[in-house]
Each structure stands twice: as structure tokens, then as C-alpha cells.
């Protein structure tokens, strides 16, 4: 188990006002149509093979900009598994409609300066493991810069315009109106690739289990990776421990039942427990349904 660290409380009384101001955007941004019936299935996955592969690849190329971590192997394993379960690579829209994306874009939740944000690895199934690692390192460092800029801008607005947070309830509506009635807004909305499947790793915070509404009904699934656990077992009459990675798949109950979700999770497990075979190399182009060349 990880030893406990002394972490200073993040919301002190002095910072409370600023904190709730910012959070009001979330509270008003949450609309009731975003409720969705979420369930999750969870498994313990063995990481021995993935650990060996990770160490081997890092020995080959010790450059910190292309270091391979467990997160990257997980991303690659998920992207590969989604090719066979494309129902989970979709999005729910109005009037019980589901859109299945033609690309597998894996979104990752990363914590940048106390604010959760997302980076998207486009076409993760077509990239090699090394490319996934390089891309996500680059995206995280870029996001660090842009997010800092955005947050400081928001802080300035809160300080100069005290009435700003009183209008917080209007933001979701303004966004929708912009998207529906402005040509530019519509094109930007269509062009954006927000990531078709979410991978999040609260395990880095030492969380043993996490149950939450992680994607507010706009995606069909989300993979949660928890802290590595030591599972006690008796081998030849002696007490021993084995390292496992608890991995949970959150899914939308409207589109499928638990067995279908468990099948996707089983495939992710297969990819992760034999990463050399499934994750290391590049993946062939799919035979049918190539969307390239459209103009």
C-alpha cells in the first residue's frame, strides 16, 4: 500500500469564495437531460506482461518525451478492443438516437494544476504504442500552457465583473444557441473531435474504487483505472501477494446490458495481459469503411 502523504486541504476558507464562483459554472451547466442510467462492471487485470513490455521499451528509448507508461498501454488496449465493440464508440443525442463514430479517439482525463481536463488521442487504434506515448506527452504539455492561460483569464473576469457568476445559468443556453444559429459555431461543433471513449485514472490519487457519473450521457462508455492493488493469496501454504489492476467499465444501460459490457472488458483484459501480441505493433488498416478521400 502507498504510505499516506500529508496533502494540504485544497479548499480553505480563504479560497472558498473563488472556488464556488468557478464551480457555479458546473452546477448550472449540469442539466437534467444529462442524467443517464450508468452501471459499471469491474475486473482485476494482471499487469506482469505489460510491466515487462513497458520496461523494455523504455530501455530502448529512454527519451522522456516518448516514455511509455501503463496509461499508454491501457489506451492502446482500449482502442484495439473498441474495434470489435463499436457500439461503445458512440454518442447519444436527442430523441434516442445514437451516433457511432467512424474514428476511435481516446480521451484521457489529466489533472493539470488542480483542474481536471481532457486530451484526445485521435485514431489511437491505428497508431503504434510508441506513437501514442509521444502524442500524449506532447498534448499534456501543450494543454498545461493553454489551460493556465484560460484559467487566469477566467480569474480576471471574476475579479473585474462581479456580476459574471450571476449569469452562469445562461452559459449552456448561449452555447446551444450559438451552435444552432451561427454557421461558424455549427461548423466548429461538427469539426471538433471530442474523443469517442473516455479513459480516466483516479488510481494515481490512490483511489481504491470510484463510482461516479463520468461522462454525463454523451458517450457510451468510460474506462476507470484504479490504484494497483496487492491481492493476498495462499501459494503452497504460504501467504503471498500478487499485483492486480482493478479496471472498471462504466456504460450506459440504455444501450446495452451488463454481459455486453463485460465482453468488452474481457477483450480489454486480453489485450492488456498479452500486450506484446496485441498492443506493441501497428494495426492494419480496416478493409471496409475507409473514410479517406472525401472532399
Amino acid at each position: 500500500m502507498t504510505p499516506l502523504k500529508k496533502i494540504p486541504p485544497s479548499i480553505g476558507a480563504d479560497r472558498l469564495a473563488g472556488w464556488t464562483d468557478k464551480r457555479m459554472l458546473y452546477i448550472h451547466g449540469f442539466q437534467h437531460y444529462m442524467w443517464y442510467p450508468n452501471c459499471c462492471v469491474q475486473k482485476n487485470i494482471e499487469l506482469t506482461e505489460a510491466d515487462i513490455l513497458r520496461k523494455e521499451m523504455n530501455r530502448e528509448d529512454p527519451d522522456p518525451g516518448s516514455r511509455v507508461t501503463f496509461n499508454h498501454i491501457i489506451n492502446k488496449a482500449v482502442a484495439n478492443a473498441l474495434r470489435h465493440h463499436i457500439l461503445f464508440n458512440s454518442k447519444r443525442t436527442w430523441r434516442d438516437t445514437y451516433l457511432v463514430y467512424p474514428h476511435i479517439d481516446i480521451a484521457n482525463v489529466v489533472d493539470v494544476e488542480g483542474m481536471a481536463t481532457q486530451i484526445v488521442i485521435p485514431d489511437a487504434d491505428k497508431l503504434t504504442l510508441r506513437q501514442v506515448a509521444q502524442l500524449s506527452h506532447r498534448l499534456v504539455s501543450t494543454r498545461r500552457v493553454t489551460l493556465r492561460h484560460r484559467m487566469s483569464r477566467l480569474d480576471n473576469i471574476f475579479q473585474t465583473l462581479p456580476l459574471f457568476n450571476k449569469l452562469a445559468w445562461a452559459f449552456p443556453f448561449v452555447n446551444r444557441v450559438l451552435r444552432d444559429y451561427s454557421h461558424k459555431g455549427a461548423i466548429e461543433h461538427l469539426e471538433s473531435r471530442p474523443g469517442s471513449f473516455l479513459v480516466t485514472n483516479p488510481g494515481t490519487l490512490g483511489v481504491q474504487d470510484c463510482k461516479a457519473m463520468l461522462f454525463f450521457g454523451f458517450r457510451m462508455g468510460c474506462l476507470r483505472v484504479m490504484a494497483i492493488e496487492q491481492k493476498a493469496q495462499i501459494v503452497d501454504g504460504k501467504l503471498g501477494f500478487k499485483k492486480v489492476l482493478p479496471t472498471g467499465l462504466d456504460y450506459d444501460q440504455r444501450i446495452c446490458d451488463a454481459p455486453a459490457a463485460a465482453r468488452l472488458l474481457n477483450e480489454i483484459q486480453r489485450n492488456l495481459e498479452d500486450p506484446r501480441r496485441y498492443c506493441a505493433g501497428p494495426v492494419d488498416e480496416p478493409e471496409i469503411g475507409s473514410d479517406e478521400g472525401g472532399a
Binding site: 496533502i7 494540504p8 458546473y26 489533472d111 481536471a116 483516479p202 490519487l205 490512490g206 483511489v207
Partner: peptide, 18 residues
């Protein structure tokens, strides 16, 4: 969830445990 991120919640639990 609207009020806190997991990180904030975990920080409180760590403080409590300590």
C-alpha cells in the same frame, strides 16, 4: 460531482486519515 473533483475529495480523505 458538480461541486468537487475527485482530487479534492481524495485530498480531504487523506487529511482525515492522517
Amino acid at each position: 460531482q458538480r461541486l468537487m473533483d475527485a482530487k479534492t475529495a481524495v485530498a480531504f480523505m487523506d487529511v482525515l486519515a492522517n
